[in-house]
């Protein structure tokens, strides 16, 4: 009896291992292939009738940093990094401010603001891109990195929902005690709530930090012809135009790998916080 249960479990686990291995292979193989392509010696985006490259080289990586006349990869990387850092700082602050105000403070317009914010977040954003571009032009910021930072972080306040859920779980008694001791509400926010919100802050930082690396459309409308201020997505997409794809496809793969490494590390390290974040603190990992 006992043995049969054990056997059944062992069999079940065996099936699970097989399924996991198969799925894992499915998931990892495109990435592995991307890495392989980034070391490929043959140029072009298609291999004819075979899959594994016939030769390997490091040139694709070297060239990203040396052959910068046409595609200034290091510069774009730096641009994106700066934009990502700035916009994630501002976004995170905005989200925390809004979420705290809506979660902890009581004032007349609280409820309407929450509903409006919920609804506003649903507009297909890029429809308004052209208007945004012209507005930025009015304040003389079009085609600049500052504009990108503004655009990526301005709307951040609307995504308060998850963070608010997190704040809701922090016991109110602490705030009240602090206020009795003479602390202002700002001090409560800054000195008590924020230090307790590490998971949610990490989550917000992670998600907002990644946005500039992924966005193509918005950046293209704002940057227009200003090549020097391109972000990585914008620049790398240009490598795939019909005039340059043959020469640059493998370098494109190399560029993607370079972008991927820091994000991968960040993500694997921060995984735990990410989960806590997205579930609004209902889970304490």
């Amino acid at each position: 009896m006992k043995n049969s249960i054990k056997a059944r479990r062992r069999f079940g686990n065996g099936v699970v291992y097989v399924v996991l291995a198969a799925l894992g292979l499915l998931w990892i193989s495109p990435i592995v292939y991307l890495v392989i392509s980034s070391f490929r010696a043959e140029k072009g985006s298609f291999l004819d009738g075979y899959i594994m490259p016939r030769g390997y080289t490091l040139d694709n990586y070297v060239r990203l940093f040396t052959d910068t006349d046409q595609f200034n990869y290091p510069r774009w990387f730096l641009n994106t990094f700066v934009v990502a850092v700035c916009s994630c700082i501002i976004s995170t602050l905005f989200v925390l401010m809004v979420a705290y105000a809506l979660s902890r403070l009581r004032f007349k317009m609280r409820r309407p603001i929450m509903n409006i914010a919920l609804v506003l977040g649903m507009f297909p954003g890029f429809m308004s891109m052209i208007a945004i571009y012209h507005l930025l032009k009015v304040i003389n910021l079009d085609k600049t990195l500052v504009a990108l930072v503004l655009v990526y972080s301005a709307g951040a306040g609307l995504t308060y929902y998850i963070t608010k859920g997190f704040f809701d779980t922090i016991p109110k008694a602490m705030d009240e005690a602090a206020i009795l001791d003479g602390a202002t509400r700002f001090q409560v926010f800054w000195k008590i709530t924020i230090p307790m919100s590490k998971p949610i802050i990490t989550y917000t930082v992670l998600t907002t930090f990644m946005a500039p690396w992924l966005d193509y459309i918005m950046a293209s409308v704002i940057m227009k012809d200003n090549y020097q201020n391109y972000t990585i997505a914008l620049g790398m997409y240009r490598m795939l135009e019909r005039e340059s794809i043959y020469e640059w496809y493998t370098a494109f793969c190399a560029g993607a790998v370079i972008v991927g490494i820091p994000i991968a590390i960040l993500f694997i390290v921060m995984q735990r916080y990410y989960v806590e974040g997205v579930t609004g603190g209902s889970v304490k990992g």
Partner: peptide, 23 residues
């Protein structure tokens, strides 16, 4: 881009423009 991948291997002829001449 397929023509630049396959020409000389499995593709013997193809329609394209001068942008692929060098490749």
């Amino acid at each position: 881009a397929i023509i630049t991948g396959g020409m000389g291997e499995s593709i013997i002829a193809g329609v394209s423009g001068v942008w692929n001449a060098e490749a």
